Simulated assay, not measured.
Amino acid sequence: MSYSYIVKLSHQNFSLAYSEFRAILDSEEMPYETKFKLDEFIIFDSTKEAVDLLLRRAALAVEAGTFIELIDVERGLRDIVSIVKESLDNENSCVEIDSIRGFGSEIAKALVDIIGIKSLCTRKKKESGMQPIKIALIANIALIYRVIYRRRQRLYSDREPHKRPCYRPGTMKPVLARLFVNLSRVSSLRRELVLDPFCGVGGFAIEACLMGLRSVCCDVDENMVMGARINIEGYDCHSLVDIARMDAGLGALASYRVDGIATDPPYGIQSVPRGYKSLIHLMSKFIENAYNTLKNRRFMVFAVPLQLTKELDRVLTEHGFEIKEKHIDMVHGSLTRTLYVVKKNA
């Protein structure tokens, strides 16, 4: 049975977050229909099974709920209050009011006066199991929904690079690693296989494992492979991960046939393995081999420094990949990269 839901995505990374939202539901072949988008909020029709799966996997879904109503604030506050009170179960629910990025702060104060402080959520009420009815004020609109999910950063904190059994500097954080895997459109329900050919100490493979995916984790550096083995064992993922020392630019990669590729290639000149003239040279050989490894009509996700984008566009097209998405990701002051989502043409 289909219901209306609302999800609040990461505002700072909205294009990536919305792409992840669609990628998860599409990869799992779950039914959904987007009804309305307002800044970082998506209202959509779907099933409980689909929403549960989305929220188990999504890295950039901040909050979600069962949708109640969308109201133009100019209609008056009484309409908002009336709908909220109809939705309240005084013993099991409370009210939260959020002025998104400061919009409607005066309206929020007026709503508190009308609804009453006693009906507002407190930490104690939420810890006791009371369910929030949320009023989100944004762009002269009030979005009303019953909160069913909030992202808890502490679920990722135990997997931060410096807390893993084996740490290496420059390792991608688990939220982004999970995002890359999700954008590669591999299905956890079908236990599909995802490849990370520049795996470092195994961050992508850990996130894939925790979503129920199988993965192949490769790196040319023996020390990285050893580190990956330690981390994979540390998160009890050895049954779902195959680890190998392998050069992503060599043809041995084609011995695998995978459902998706998600990887974070080396960026700096000093990071490029011996035998390659440049990062472009390495990426060209990798893309050539990736085409032979990836199944038809499946997806690959990776990032490169922004200045290489024009050359990579050419290389991808020459090797039979269709560029589906490109996202700009500002890592820090000296590094802006392009995140590619590409599809292998049959």
Rank of each mutant, 00 (worst) to 15 (best):
R190Y: 03
R190M: 04
R191S: 12
E192F: 05
L193P: 02
L193D: 08
L193Y: 08
V194N: 09
V194M: 04
L195E: 01
D196Y: 09
P197R: 06
P197K: 07
F198S: 08
C199L: 03
C199E: 00
G200K: 05
V201I: 15
V201E: 00
V201S: 13
G202Y: 00
G202V: 00
G203I: 07
G203F: 02
F204A: 06
F204G: 06
A205L: 02
A205P: 02
A205D: 04
I206V: 14
I206G: 07
E207K: 10
E207F: 12
A208E: 09
A208G: 15
A208S: 13
C209L: 07
C209I: 09
C209G: 13
L210V: 11
L210A: 14
M211I: 09
M211R: 07
M211P: 02
M211C: 12
G212L: 06
G212W: 12
G212S: 04
L213E: 07
R214V: 00
R214A: 02
S215G: 10
S215C: 10
V216Q: 08
C217T: 06
C217L: 09
C217E: 07
C218D: 08
D219R: 00
V220I: 14
V220A: 11
D221F: 11
E222W: 08
E222F: 12
E222C: 04
N223T: 15
N223I: 13
N223Q: 15
M224W: 07
M224K: 03
M224Y: 14
V225W: 00
M226Y: 15
G227D: 10
G227P: 12
A228P: 06
I230H: 09
I230Q: 14
G234D: 03
Y235G: 06
Y235T: 06
Y235C: 08
Y235V: 13
Y235L: 08
Y235E: 04
Y235N: 09
C237H: 14
H238V: 11
S239C: 04
S239N: 14
L240P: 03
L240I: 01
L240R: 13
L240C: 12
L240N: 09
V241G: 12
V241K: 10
I243W: 12
I243M: 07
I243T: 15
R245M: 15
D247K: 05
A248T: 06
G249A: 10
L250I: 06
G251I: 09
G251K: 09
L253G: 05
L253S: 02
L253E: 02
L253M: 13
S255C: 01
S255R: 13
Y256G: 03
R257F: 06
R257D: 01
V258G: 05
V258S: 01
V258F: 09
G260S: 10
G260E: 04
I261D: 03
I261M: 03
T263E: 08
P265G: 08
P265Y: 11
P265H: 12
Y267M: 05
Y267N: 06
G268P: 07
G268V: 10
G268L: 13
I269M: 13
Q270I: 14
S271T: 08
S271W: 04
S271N: 14
